[in-house]
């Protein structure tokens, strides 16, 4: 089922066109990743898709009654607004205590219900945001640089959580990230952005595309290759093993 379709989408921010002529769609259950250098319009595109920015031209069609779980890039909590985690989880829709406890456990922070939001560490904060998104039983989960401020193991753990959530809820996931090697490997489709869609396809296709290599050079694709290589190696090893058995 098609959840969201953008057609000829052109978006401006602060009077400047940052995204032009985007055609894209997200289907139920797939993981789509947006990659691109800083200022390439990734977050702007996300805001356009959720309707936070009105398009200059083109349009966005969403499935009727779609539930979007959105984990923003950052959420500034300055301490003026007193807010416990459980009160935060009930914005804008209230949930039962049980449901909240389950979501917090699912997100990996079972003991935080009564904590004040502004006392959370970066990793706890992101997980609470995830718990809030999960409580909406989303059709589409949007993660905008959700692992910012997490260290490598923390980020890897976070993505494992996402993968688990996706298979559990059968929701689609739209991710924006810099952690190219981890994120791309976990994606069904990748869109490479730089003011427009440069190239798109499976991670392998995008990684091999000259547009992608022009943007990211060999450094990141190197890391990506290493990650994939481990997979290859793993398969290769299995293969060896089988041969060995045969022998």
């Amino acid at each position: 089922m098609r959840l969201i379709t953008a057609t000829g989408l052109t978006l401006q921010q602060a009077g400047k066109t940052v995204m032009r002529d985007v055609d894209m769609h997200i289907d139920q259950g797939e993981i789509v990743t947006l990659v691109g250098p800083n200022g390439s319009g990734k977050s702007t595109l996300v805001k356009g898709l959720i309707g936070a920015i009105k398009p200059l031209s083109g349009n966005v069609e969403t499935m009727r009654g779609i539930r979007i779980g959105y984990v923003p890039q950052s959420l500034h909590m300055d301490g003026l607004l007193p807010l416990t985690v459980s009160r935060f989880l009930c914005l804008p829709n209230r949930h039962s205590k049980d449901a909240m406890a389950r979501a917090l456990t699912e997100a990996g922070v079972p003991d935080l219900a009564k904590a004040q939001m502004r006392t959370l560490s970066g990793g706890q904060f992101q997980r609470v945001l995830l718990a809030r998104a999960l409580l909406m039983s989303p059709d589409l989960l949007i993660l905008d640089e959700a692992t910012q401020g997490l260290d490598q193991p923390g980020a890897a753990d976070f993505y494992r959580k996402i993968e688990h959530v996706r298979s559990h809820l059968n929701c689609a996931v739209l991710m924006v990230s810099h952690d190219l090697h981890v994120v791309m490997a976990a994606s069904d489709r990748v869109l490479c952005l730089n003011g427009h869609v440069c190239c798109e396809g499976t991670p392998e296709v995008v990684q091999g595309a000259p547009e992608y290599q022009a943007l990211f050079g060999t450094g990141d694709s190197g890391a990506f290759a290493i990650y994939r290589h481990q997979h290859d190696h793993h398969h290769h090893h299995d293969h060896d093993h089988e041969e060995h058995d045969h022998a």
Partner: peptide, 21 residues
């Protein structure tokens, strides 16, 4: 109340839940 609080927290977060800032 609920909508105002959500919009106060973050405009995009509100928009994703269908609340107009």
């Amino acid at each position: 109340w609920q909508r105002l609080l959500t919009a106060t927290l973050n405009p995009d977060l509100a928009q994703a839940s269908g609340i107009s800032f």
